[in-house]
Design a protein around this nucleic acid. Structure first.
Length: 573
DNA sequence: GCCGTTTTCGGCCCGACTGTTTTCAGTCG
């Protein structure tokens, strides 16, 4: 059974939760949480690193002990240390930590004094009003617990970026309309354009914070007000989304923006830099001798104090951006305006909703120089995939359209299936008539790591293979990526001049940011395409660009920032 | 449990809000 990085991270997080309830040293607990984050964020499979005897202690936050524990997990699939803790402390207790207002101390108290082990027992105790009798608890805490338990079942996990956007944009406009609001910006993972968003953070400057809080909490979509203070309020919207609003003075705007944009790891890095310089940094500014404020108004002036240029929010994950900034080696990130065309789109000829012509005209309106039509191939029957004959007809159709429509070139392509044995779903005799070939997996997702990897490697041997579409097959919150050795695939792609795609569809965003950076580091080129099945979906490009930015990609790393002439050279294998 | 250009021991990011207290611990981000 392959051990995924997330398996190791889950085990470490479980250890941390249980140690927390046991009241262990908080820095020891933090070490486990940090290690979980480090392992989860690796672009390499930690299983491979162990097998190849790489030194795990090189990783940040991994020392002798944790390196050994990682090896144990990879080799046995479990961790003896965790099993020992589970004997002392019921792992069910960890579930209570997810209830808002209950932290390790309170969970421990409820457990010890009321012998509560499970969520059901917690509910029972609260209903019998046993909780409010405990020292440190009261009526309100008990009500909060009951309420949280009730809504817990329907509680949404992290939302896809596009769903967050639907909720965020109207709220932003509503706040912007308030005359007491001066500056306003999103912060948090939403500003960092993470593929999923847990809650929304909004930052405002104002002379009248009280009025702003009043305006915010009376937004018509607010279902529950969790906290309402002078400078900070938290509400839950009807959709279940949590929104935090923070008001600061304009002199602190930059400091607060950095603070609330995060990530937490990036902020901790900055704070440590500050400590090295005998400075203090918080959401109000940078301070010397604990008193004198030396920066805070803009993000730029704060980064400047630490001898760094401005760091784009997408990079603020403590994945080396601080070091790169200090060495003057930050990437000049790709922008949406750099994109000159879209290399994956579908028409009514397979499973799209618009005709070739409608798609082409929509792309032209976006100012693109080209749009590739990549309908499905025959084996994807549910998508009405094309066989050689129907693809031949589509080629003729596109040739005619290209004569008819000016100022945009429709590229002839296909999203050809990679069959189980690694062969392509259509004959070379038709593939060679296309401008380029996009290849993808749509079946047999459950092959072993080795078989799935070899399947793609074999497909890449076909000289018409240009782009690997949605390489890992994951759908956010819906389908896990199939087991693949991405390092091997990238090595092969590099050797054979194949391209990896970032599918910009907000459900896919595949490859993810980690793999995008890995591709860049390995010298593998990327295409960003929307996988549009309707003309309005061509607008999904921005999600792909954001993901690419999170993967440190620059204009030159992405092939469809080039003209058609430039592309042609790349597609020649 | 990790880490080190003063350190192999003794630190480890910082502040707001709530609910419980009556000056603060716990939680959260």
């Amino acid at each position: 059974m392959p051990i995924h990085n997330s398996d190791v991270a889950n085990i470490f997080n479980q250890v941390a939760d249980l140690l927390d309830i046991e009241g262990a040293n908080i820095f020891r607990i933090r070490a486990y949480r940090d290690a979980a984050r480090t392992v989860k964020g690796l672009s390499k499979r930690v299983e491979d690193m162990v097998k190849e005897k790489e030194d795990l202690q090189e990783l940040p936050g991994i020392g002798k002990d944790l390196a050994k524990k990682i090896e144990e997990i990879v080799e046995t699939g479990s961790l003896e240390f965790l099993e020992e803790i589970k004997k002392r402390t019921n792992p069910e207790l960890a579930k209570m930590l997810s209830i808002s207002g209950l932290g390790p101390k309170k969970v421990s108290k409820i457990n010890k004094e009321l012998e509560v082990e499970k969520l059901e027992q917690l509910q029972e105790a609260a209903e019998k009003h046993k909780i409010q009798e405990l020292e440190g608890f009261g009526k309100k805490s008990e009500e909060k617990i009951l309420k949280a338990l009730k809504t817990k079942k329907e509680e949404a996990p992290r939302s896809k970026l596009i769903s967050a956007e639907e909720i965020a944009e109207p709220l932003f406009e509503y706040l912007e309309d308030d005359e007491n609001v001066d500056k306003i910006a999103f912060a948090g993972s939403y500003r960092r354009h993470k593929e999923t968003v847990g809650d929304l953070d909004i930052l405002v400057t104002s002379e009248n914070p009280k009025e702003v809080m009043e305006h915010f909490t009376s937004y018509e979509d607010v279902e529950d007000i969790q906290a309402k203070g002078k400078t900070k309020s938290t509400v839950i919207l009807r959709s279940g989304f949590q929104v935090d609003l923070r008001v600061v003075e304009k002199e602190s705007y930059g400091a607060a923006l950095i603070y609330f944009t995060g990530s937490k790891a990036h902020n901790i890095k900055l704070r440590n830099l500050a400590l090295d310089k005998d400075l203090k940094i918080n959401e109000y500014g940078v301070f010397k001798n604990d008193e004198d404020k030396i920066a805070g108004k803009t993000e730029e002036e704060i980064y400047d104090i630490f001898d760094m240029p401005y760091i784009e929010p997408e990079l603020r994950e403590d994945r080396g951006e601080v070091e790169a900034a200090r060495e003057g080696k930050l990437p000049k990130l790709l922008t949406l305006a750099d994109m000159r065309g879209d290399l994956q789109a579908h028409s009514t000829n397979s499973d799209g909703h618009n005709s070739l012509q409608e798609m082409a005209e929509a792309a032209k309106e976006k100012g693109y120089e080209y749009l590739a039509m990549t309908d499905h191939s025959q084996s994807v029957r549910v998508a009405n995939g094309l066989d050689e004959k129907r693809l031949g007809k589509e080629i003729d159709e596109i040739n005619k359209l290209n004569e008819k429509i000016k100022d945009i070139r429709i590229l002839k392509s296909i999203e050809v299936d990679i069959l189980k044995d690694g062969s392509l779903d259509l004959d070379d005799s038709i593939l060679k008539k296309l401008d380029f070939v996009l290849c993808a997996i749509h079946s047999y997702f459950n092959l072993s790591l080795e078989d799935q990897t070899n399947r793609i490697l074999k497909a890449m041997d076909n000289k018409y293979f240009n782009i690997l579409a949605h390489p890992t097959g994951r759908k956010i919150g819906d389908r896990k990526p199939y087991d693949l050795d991405m390092e091997k695939i990238m090595e092969a792609a590099k050797e054979k001049n194949c391209i990896l795609e970032i599918d910009a569809h907000p459900v896919r965003l595949d490859i993810n940011d980690h793999y995008a950076k890995m591709a860049k580091d390995m010298g593998v080129k990327i295409s960003i395409s929307t996988d549009a099945h309707a003309k309005n979906e061509l607008a999904y490009m921005k999600y792909g660009v954001w993901q690419a930015r999170r993967g440190w990609l620059e204009k030159d790393d992405v092939i469809n920032t080039r003209s058609w002439n430039g592309l042609k050279k790349i597609f020649k294998r």
